[in-house]
Design a protein around this nucleic acid. Structure first.
Lengths: 195, 195
DNA sequence: TTTTATTGATTGATCAGTCAATCAAAAATA
DNA sequence: TATTTTTGATTGACTGATCAATCAATAAAA
């Protein structure tokens, strides 16, 4: 069984397993045993590769956000105009895998963790800044800078708010409705400035 | 020392202590010992009155939401017109004690907990419904029912989103700015319907 | 005396983290 | 090629710490 070069394979498997277990569990209070079992290895191996539970969880957040970032970059490249780029950012935020209940539960758990783990907080701040600056950059092409900043704040808050409300799973809002609400926010506020 | 009639006193002290400890800690992974110490009693007494840690935490959420509800009711009574009532709901959401970092941290922890505790989830769903219906009821006086529902969704999402973004404490938004953003959302969307 | 308040001490369970031992592939050597 | 050595992968068993929960004992009020 033991083959050389397993490290990257195991690391990925453990990070993916952590994500699933956290999503299912809806919290970061998961055990190394659960994660290791889900990944099909022993708890000792998880410690061997990550040193500590905290490091594994931090790596999990990092990978998660990296993937989201990649999606955004791809979507932005495909869009032409600033208005299309704004729509692309919104669409990616609510795309199926991001908006799945387990993913939302995991996000929420990470936000809670950020209250205690400085490193987790740093990652989430980077995400928040990136979302904000993607919005501002493209809004600036459509309205004055001051308005762009304000509208971006509102749009970012709305996106995050739709997520957190989704986590309660009462009166769940569909992907399309969430996108429509955010688009409507942008359109209405941009129109209000012109009119 | 032992006087009769301590039960309500101790219960309140423990619930308040739990809130503070959760807020400081930024998570529900707090120990009964910490809470009891903060309340100035032994851990055993906390168990005596609440039976279990989970029950104490659930009671803490319940009391917290009850207080928020009372603030809203008071504010609504003081407001006259539907538009004023809408502003009142927004104002209360961002009032000083609600928007304090520890309070926000505690809220976030409760949302995360709701993924696992059905009872916690129920309380938060009730809060979400109440916010939504307060908004819809007053919006209906100002626009068609369909639009009222949609605008209420957006406003509620924005309020919750401003909270969660605040929890990261990067580029913190002031109470006034948060109120202004939400008010602006309402005003702009109501105007758009009339124009 | 009975009831209520209160705690120190203890228990049992859970978990993160460690460690020594095993196994097989790869590399080195004969 | 055959044999030995080294190295990476892997785990079972163990340890120490933490914590929720229990309980018997105490003390004061009723």
């Amino acid at each position: 069984m033991p083959k050389v070069g397993m490290e990257p394979v195991r690391r990925k498997a453990l990070v993916d397993a952590a994500m699933r277990v956290i999503g299912d569990h809806g919290s970061l209070t998961v055990t190394m045993s659960e994660i290791a079992k889900e990944a099909g290895v022993s708890p000792a191996l998880a410690h061997h590769y990550f040193g500590s539970k905290e490091q594994l969880l931090i790596e999990t957040v990092r990978v998660h956000l990296q993937r989201l970032r990649d999606s955004v970059v791809t979507a932005l490249r495909a869009a032409k105009t600033p208005r299309e780029k704004l729509s692309a950012v919104i669409r990616v935020s609510f795309q199926a895998d991001q908006f799945a209940p387990e993913t939302i539960a995991a996000w929420l758990a990470f936000y809670a963790e950020a209250q205690r783990s400085e490193e987790t907080r740093r990652f989430l701040v980077i995400y928040a800044r990136r979302l904000h600056s993607n919005l501002v950059a493209n809004l600036k092409a459509l309205c004055p800078a001051g308005d762009a900043a304000r509208i971006a704040e509102g749009a970012a808050a709305m996106i995050d708010g739709l997520y957190i409300r989704q986590s309660l799973r009462s009166a769940p809002i569909s992907t399309e409705a969430s996108i429509a609400l955010t688009e409507d926010y942008l359109t209405t506020h941009l129109n209000a400035l012109e009119g």
